[in-house]
Amino acid sequence: MDQDLAIAALAALAHSTRLNAFRLLVRHEPDGLPTGALVEASGLTQSTFSTHLAVLAKAGLVIAERQGRQQIQRANIDMLRALMTFLAKDCCQGRAELCEPLLADLACC
């Protein structure tokens, strides 16, 4: 991942509605959620939420898949992994043992 992609992803997540929606999608992997369920969870109108969803999709964080008459939204876990790796790559000046507390926090979830 290059810096421009990381900035776009972080900017997309820098809004509470988008961050909450993305986190909800991550929790529902690998099945994803219908767009209507995301709209309902957000408490916003369809058109307002669609704008937020478009920002996440443009940043590569969300992928839409048609299943019959529904659009299923899924978190792009590969993009999330790339972003996390980009952010942690220089962690602890190359001393992996210093990053162990971070990994322990992730293991609990």
Rank of each mutant, 00 (worst) to 15 (best):
R27A: 13
C99A: 15
S42K: 05
P101F: 13
L106K: 04
E100H: 12
E65C: 10
S50P: 03
L53K: 11
Q71Y: 08
M84P: 02
A8P: 03
L38R: 04
P101E: 09
S16H: 10
L80H: 06
T35C: 04
C108Q: 15
T35Q: 12
F22E: 07
Q3D: 10
A107C: 03
G94K: 05
M84E: 08
S47E: 14
A57L: 07
T51S: 14
A82R: 08
R69N: 13
L61S: 04
A6I: 11
A59V: 00
A9Y: 02
E65S: 13
L53A: 12
Q67F: 04
Q70N: 14
Q93H: 09
R95V: 05
G94F: 05
T45L: 08
I7Y: 01
R27T: 09
L10I: 08
Q93T: 05
A88K: 11
F22T: 02
A8M: 09
L24N: 14
G43A: 06
V39P: 01
E97P: 08
Q71M: 14
A59D: 02
L87D: 06
G43T: 10
L19R: 14
A75C: 05
R95L: 07
T48F: 00
E97G: 06
V26L: 12
S16N: 13
C109D: 10
P34N: 12
A37H: 07
A54M: 06
A11K: 12
M79Y: 00
A88Q: 10
L87S: 09
G94A: 00
A75Y: 00
M1I: 03
T48Q: 08
D78V: 01
D78I: 04
C91K: 00
D90P: 10
H15A: 13
A9F: 00
L10T: 01
D2T: 04
T45G: 14
P101S: 09
F86R: 04
Q46D: 13
T45I: 00
A12S: 02
M84N: 11
G32V: 00
Q71T: 07
A9E: 04
A88C: 12
T51C: 12
A6H: 02
S47K: 12
I72P: 01
E29V: 06
T48H: 07
A8S: 14
L103H: 12
R27I: 02
G43W: 07
V55R: 15
C92P: 07
I72G: 01
A8K: 14
D31N: 14
L87R: 09
R74L: 15
P30H: 11
R27C: 01
G32C: 06
T51K: 15
A37M: 08
G32N: 13
G68T: 13
T85W: 04
A14D: 14
A37Y: 04
M1Q: 05
V62C: 06
A12R: 02
C108S: 12
A54I: 04
L102Y: 10
D31G: 09
D31V: 08
I7G: 04
L83S: 01
L19N: 08
A41G: 08
L87Q: 11
S47H: 12
A82I: 01
